[in-house]
Design a protein around this nucleic acid. Structure first.
Length: 369
DNA sequence: CTGGCAATAT
DNA sequence: GATATTGCCA
């Protein structure tokens, strides 16, 4: 057990060094900084015997998980894949989906000290995130939901029973029928048919508005994936994207909408949202490298092609720090399909407009309207 | 009929 | 205010 502490020490040192580096780019790597800091904190606490237990209640709903006051938040970390069986090329692994409606609408679970975290993507979670305060392994024997998953990909939607809810304000608490936390029987045959990550449809006549649907990471990931295959958000069309995503239940409109938002966000100023508050100098990334806004990086499931990055592995294996830059998404000149219409707009690499000297300084009256 | 944009709703 | 849905138009 001594070695374990040693490991911690070294690990902490490594982390601290990392943090020093990162601190130089607070703007570019805000998350990293925070993460590393928290990681250090966590390790220290463990080193000192203080076993901090973080209830990784994980992501509750569609909202993001604001880092709590101080405790390290390891919720979103990608647990080291134990299996690591098939996915080496593609990073599609999730297949879970339940069905239930949202009820997320407005959960004002805003922590008092909510940080900026204005990344819009940050708010994207699973489509079917459930509100249950405590999900996960908790040995709650109480209501055991026998989830019989056949073969695995599909889930019989057992959603019906509308109780005269005319206003569509029904909160549905579907139990977490997700995958079992321990060993998801993820079959290798997952990437075949349309994935059913959805399950809300046929809403009983009534031309009501569809319930707002949150784009889960899965969804968004697929979305991005499709996008990059299509050569960027500007050249991709909703239909193509939808087909590529292979998500059953997803409509063109939804994709269209998402795409619209995506474009809006990417086009705007991915990084230059400098307010007077910032403490840092506007560090610029060099020409091409230009980091894609972290909010858009795919969830960095960097299963690098056969190469373990300098990923430090915590002695306890709590989490695996992702420190690798996944291949740029936007810059994918492959398959530049532009059959008929071409947008004179900036193609990929939207944010390359950094050469406007005046725009980011004074008299920035452009953003209005 | 599909894609893009704008209005509208949550 | 942000994000999703719906409508309208090219």
């Amino acid at each position: 057990m001594l070695s374990r502490k040693m490991g911690f020490r070294e690990y902490i040192e490594a982390l601290e060094e990392e943090r020093r580096k990162i601190q130089v780019f607070p703007k570019e790597l805000p998350l990293s900084l925070e993460l590393v800091t928290q990681a250090i904190e966590g390790c220290r606490q463990q080193l000192f015997g203080t076993v901090t237990e973080y209830n990784l209640n994980g992501q509750s709903e569609c909202s993001e998980q604001t880092s709590t006051d101080e405790g390290p938040v390891f919720e979103e970390f990608i647990p080291i894949k134990k299996g690591a069986a098939q996915d080496s090329v593609e990073e599609e692994e999730e297949e879970e989906n339940e069905d239930e409606d949202e009820q997320h609408s407005h959960q004002h679970r805003k922590t008092t000290s909510d940080k900026k975290k204005s990344d819009w993507l940050r708010s994207v979670q699973l489509w079917n995130s459930n509100p249950p305060p405590t999900k996960e392994d908790v040995p709650r024997k109480a209501n055991v939901v026998e989830v019989k998953r056949n073969g695995g990909a599909f889930q019989p939607f057992q959603r019906e029973e509308k109780s005269a809810i005319v206003d569509g304000k029904a909160n549905n608490y579907a139990s977490a029928i997700g995958k079992t936390p321990s060993s998801p029987p993820v079959p290798a045959t997952s990437s075949t048919g349309p994935v059913r990550i959805d399950s809300r449809k046929e809403e009983k006549g009534q031309t009501q508005r569809k319930q707002r649907r949150c784009w889960s990471q899965e969804l968004h990931k697929r979305f991005l994936h499709a996008l990059q295959q299509l050569g960027g958000a500007d050249s991709a069309t909703p239909k193509q994207i939808r087909e590529l995503m292979k998500v059953d239940g997803l409509t063109n409109d939804e994709v269209k909408s998402h795409l619209q938002k995506f474009r809006l966000h990417t086009r705007r100023s991915p990084i230059i949202h400098n307010n007077g508050n910032s403490q840092a100098a506007p560090l610029f990334l060099v020409g091409n490298i230009f980091v894609q806004p972290p909010e858009y990086g795919v969830v960095a499931t960097s299963t690098a092609s056969g190469g373990e990055l300098t990923t430090v592995t915590a002695p306890t294996g709590i989490y695996a720090p992702v420190a690798a830059h996944p291949p740029l998404v936007t810059n994918t000149p492959i398959m530049n399909h532009s059959p008929s219409k071409e947008r004179p707009n900036d193609n990929n690499n939207n944010s390359a407009q950094s050469n406007s000297p005046a725009s980011s300084s004074s008299t920035h009256t452009i953003t209005t309207t």
